[in-house]
Simulated scan of single mutants.
Amino acid sequence: MKRLFPAPLLSLSLWALWLLLNLSLSAGNLILGALLGLLAPIIFAPLRPLPARIRRPGVAVKLFFLVGRDVLVSNLAVAWGVLRAGHKPPRSTFVKLPLDLHDAHGLAALAMICTVVPGTVWSELALDRSVLLLHVFDLDDEAQFIEHFKTTYERPLMEIFQ
């Protein structure tokens, strides 16, 4: 049964999304949506990563709220930096962050955090996953930024996934 339905919730979601996007409950759409829901998880099963094992859910909840706070604070800081750019231009730079985090799920979470927190416009992960190159909108002290990044984001992700 698992081979026929490797991800039943995903199959049901794809079927429902198909019907929602087409805004029709016709027989053709019901059948096409069902085929999509059944075949897509089977075809793409080799591409699915191994299931994530969250070792410390309390740390994950704490990190979630911490990132939410940082998004708000960073939005205000970037807005203020843009408004005062005529008087004091931002000191944008690229920062190389050495990484101790090697878990694929942790790195994916780190990438999402870098994406949602304003002020980090661009990032690149080294092929060996040892360094993250990050563009920072306004930077005062590189060493302090690296320590803050590692303490605030990387270490909790290591506790959660490694």
Rank of each mutant, 00 (worst) to 15 (best):
R56V: 04
I31K: 06
V59S: 03
G33A: 12
L32P: 05
P41V: 01
L39W: 09
L19C: 03
L35N: 10
N22M: 14
A16M: 14
R53H: 12
L50P: 07
I54Y: 07
I54L: 12
F44Q: 02
S24G: 11
L20G: 14
L47N: 03
P46R: 01
L32W: 14
L21E: 10
R53N: 11
W15R: 03
G28R: 06
R55Q: 15
I42W: 06
R55D: 09
L14M: 03
W15T: 01
P57H: 03
G37S: 02
L23T: 11
R56C: 07
G28P: 05
A45W: 04
A40Y: 08
S24P: 06
A40W: 08
A40F: 10
A45Y: 07
G58T: 09
N22G: 13
P46K: 01
G33K: 03
L39A: 14
L32S: 15
L30R: 04
F44G: 02
L23H: 14
I42F: 04
V59I: 14
S26E: 08
I43H: 05
P57Q: 08
L19Q: 01
F44D: 04
A52F: 06
G28K: 04
A27H: 05
R55W: 10
V59T: 15
L20T: 15
L50V: 12
P46S: 05
L20H: 15
G37I: 00
L35Q: 12
L17E: 11
R48I: 08
L12K: 06
S13H: 09
G33H: 03
A27R: 08
L19M: 13
L25C: 09
L19G: 01
P46T: 01
L30M: 14
A45H: 09
V59E: 10
